[in-house]
Design a protein around this nucleic acid. Structure first.
Lengths: 182, 182
DNA sequence: TAGCCCATGTAAGGAGTTACATGATTAG
DNA sequence: CTAATCATGTAACTCCTTACATGGGCTA
C-alpha cells in the first residue's frame, strides 16, 4: 500500500518517463516552460524526489562520467511506471474539471507517449462527457443567481462557462488531430 | 505590518463585504457554488477566520437572537475593508495570468461591488495587456518545442493558448457589458 | 581570484487535508 | 426518542514556501 502520490509527484514521474533527469533539470523545466503550476523551488523538488525514491517509484544515481559535477539522475522504476500509467488511465471525473484543469491537461499531455493514442482519445471521451454533464448545472446556477449578483460577478461566472465551452471545442479539435495522424 | 493574507483569506473578506456570514455559511458557499477552488472543509475555514480576526481584518461575534444555536457572524473591520480594496486594486501581472486564473476571476468578481465599474475596467485593461504580452512568448515556445513534443503534449499546450485567447475575447465582451450599463 | 552559474540540500514556518470530537436543534 | 442537520472546533500530518547553506567548476 504505497502512500498517495501528489500532483507534483506525477508531474515528476511523467517527465522522468521521457528521459532520466536531475532535480536541477526538473527545476529548469518548471521555471522555463509553461508548466507554471508547479513550483521550481528546490524546497519542493528535492524533497518530492526523495519521497518518490522512498516509495520506490523512482531511482536516483549519481551520474558517473567525464569529470562532471555530481548530478543525481532519476529514472522511474517499474513500479513507478505502473503508478504513472494507473494515474493516466483514470477517467476524468467531476472534480478534475471543476477544480482546476491544469492537472488534467498534464495527464493528457503524458497520455499519448506513455499509453498511446487510444488512451488519449478515451481521456477526451470522458472529458467531454463530464463537461457536458457539468455545463447545464453551471448554466442553471447562473440563471438562479443572475438577479442577485453584481455585474462583475456575473461576468466572472460567464468567463468560467466560456472556458468549459472552449474546452469542448478544443477536445473535438484534438480528436480530429488524432484521426488525421492514423 | 500585517502578515500576508492568503488567497482564501481574501475570498472570505470579499464574501463578508457583501454580508455578515458565519463559518458555516461560508463553507456552504464554497461547497455549493462554483467557487470550487476553495475548500469547504472546517479545518480550512475556521482557522482562516481566526487568523483574519487575529489580524484585526474581521470581527466575529455570536449572534444573539431568538433562541438560536450559537452562530459566530463575521464582519470585516475598516482595516479588513482596506486590505480587500488594496488587493482588488492591484494591477494584473504575469504571475496572475500564468499561474491559474481563478484567483484573478475572484478579484474581478468582487471589483465592481466594492470599488465600482471604473476599477473593474482598469482590471480588464491590465489583464488584456498582460495576456497580449504573454501570448507571443507562449506561441514562440510552442513553435520551438513542436518538433520534439508528442502530439498530446502539443495539443495540451494549444489548449492553454486557446484559454488565453478566449479570455481576451471575454474581456472585450465584459468591457462592452460595462459600457452598456452606463 | 573573483564572480557566476551549476547543483543539491536543509530548517522553520504557514496553510490546507483528513479525520475526529462535540453539542444543540429540528423533523419524523 | 432517534436521526439528521446545524455549527464549531481541534489534532496530526503532509506539502509547499522562503530563506539560507554549501561547494564544484567555468570564465574573465
Amino acid at each position: 500500500m504505497s502512500a498517495p502520490v501528489s500532483s507534483l509527484g506525477y508531474a515528476l514521474l511523467g517527465l522522468l518517463e521521457g528521459a532520466p533527469l536531475s532535480g536541477y533539470d526538473l527545476r529548469r523545466i518548471f521555471a522555463q516552460t509553461a508548466m507554471k503550476t508547479y513550483s521550481d523551488s528546490p524546497g519542493a523538488i528535492y524533497p518530492a524526489l526523495k519521497k518518490l525514491e522512498r516509495q520506490a517509484l523512482v531511482q536516483g544515481r549519481v551520474e558517473k562520467g567525464s569529470g562532471l559535477r555530481r548530478r543525481r539522475l532519476y529514472r522511474p522504476t517499474p513500479r513507478g511506471r505502473e503508478a504513472l500509467r494507473a494515474w493516466l488511465r483514470r477517467p476524468v471525473n467531476r472534480e478534475d474539471v471543476s477544480r482546476g484543469l491544469q492537472e488534467l491537461m498534464l495527464r493528457f499531455a503524458f497520455s499519448e507517449p506513455v499509453l498511446g493514442r487510444a488512451a488519449s482519445v478515451r481521456l477526451l471521451d470522458s472529458l467531454e462527457a463530464e463537461i457536458a454533464a457539468y455545463l447545464p448545472s453551471l448554466r442553471e446556477q447562473l440563471a438562479g443567481l443572475k438577479a442577485s449578483m453584481p455585474l462583475s460577478g456575473r461576468l466572472a461566472f460567464e468567463s468560467g462557462l466560456r472556458t468549459y465551452e472552449s474546452l469542448l471545442e478544443w477536445s473535438r479539435y484534438a480528436r480530429a488531430a488524432f484521426r488525421k495522424m492514423r
